[in-house]
Lab assay of single mutants.
Amino acid sequence: ALNRGDKVRIKRTESYWYGDVGTVASVEKSGILYPVIVRFDRVNYNGFSGSASGVNTNNFAENELELVQAAA
């Protein structure tokens, strides 16, 4: 299972961040479909780089994520 702070690569092909590595911000335990919230260094097309207006978190299912580096 994934944990907060883990570095993960995104495998959801239609995602803006496909192939990117993000950090797990939190994992919901309530049984929702996309329980893993991942935070990225770059914002998506809703904002400009360096601006706070873009979105830099997204929810994924565990099977859409590949663990790159476990949290220390």
Results as ranks from 00 to 15, higher is better:
D6T: 03
F40A: 00
L65E: 00
N63M: 07
W17V: 01
S15I: 04
N59Y: 09
S15H: 02
E66T: 06
V24I: 08
D20L: 09
I37V: 13
D20A: 07
V27L: 06
R4Y: 10
V21Q: 03
N44E: 11
F60C: 03
E64R: 01
I10R: 02
A70N: 06
P35W: 14
R12H: 04
S30N: 10
S51D: 12
Y18D: 02
K29E: 11
L2Q: 01
Y34C: 09
F40W: 00
G5L: 02
R42S: 05
N58W: 15
G31I: 10
A1F: 13
G22M: 02
R39P: 00
V27T: 04
G22L: 05
R9H: 03
F60I: 00
N44I: 09
V38G: 00
N44M: 15
E28H: 08
S30E: 12
G31T: 12
V36Y: 14
R9Q: 04
E28N: 10
N3C: 15
K29Q: 12
V21T: 07
E66G: 02
G22C: 05
S49I: 14
E66P: 03
A61T: 05
K11S: 04
E62M: 14
R42H: 06
V27G: 00
T13V: 14
G50Q: 07
N63R: 08
A70I: 08
Y16G: 02
L67A: 02
E28M: 14
N59G: 13
G47D: 15
S49Q: 11
W17K: 01
L33F: 08
E64A: 01
N46E: 15
L2Y: 14
A70V: 11
G5Q: 02
I32M: 11
G54C: 15
S53R: 04
N58F: 10
V43N: 05
S49T: 13
R39S: 08
V43G: 05
F40S: 00
G22V: 02
D20C: 13
V43R: 05
G5H: 04
N44P: 06
T23W: 08
V24R: 15
A25T: 11
N46D: 15
T57D: 05
T57Y: 13
A52N: 12
N3V: 11
S51I: 09
L33G: 11
F60R: 01
I32V: 10
I32A: 14
N58K: 07
R4L: 11
K11E: 03
V55P: 05
N59V: 07
V68Y: 04
E14Q: 10
R42Y: 04
E14G: 13
S49Y: 09
A72E: 14
F60D: 01
V24S: 01
G31M: 10
Y18T: 03
E64Q: 03
Y34R: 13
W17E: 00
E14H: 09
N58G: 15
R42L: 05
Y45A: 15
R42I: 05
N44K: 13
S49E: 15
A70W: 08
F60V: 01
S53E: 14
L33W: 04
E62Q: 09
Q69E: 14
F48W: 07
K7S: 06
F40E: 00
D6P: 02
S49R: 04
V8D: 03
S53C: 15
I37S: 09
D6Q: 03
F48E: 15
D20K: 10
R12E: 03
N59P: 08
A71K: 08
A1P: 12
Y45T: 15
F40I: 02
I32D: 12
I37R: 12
N56M: 07
K11H: 11
F48M: 14
V38Q: 00
Q69M: 12
R9K: 09
E28S: 12
K7D: 02
E62L: 12
L67C: 05
A71Q: 07
W17A: 02
Y34V: 03
G5A: 02
R12W: 04
E28K: 11
A70D: 08
K29I: 09
L2A: 04
D6A: 05
I37D: 02
N59Q: 07
P35M: 15
N63K: 07
S26Y: 13
N46P: 14
N58Y: 11
R9F: 06
G47P: 15
V38N: 00
D6Y: 03
L67N: 01
E62T: 10
K7V: 09
G50A: 10
N3H: 12
S26W: 13
Y16L: 05
G19S: 03
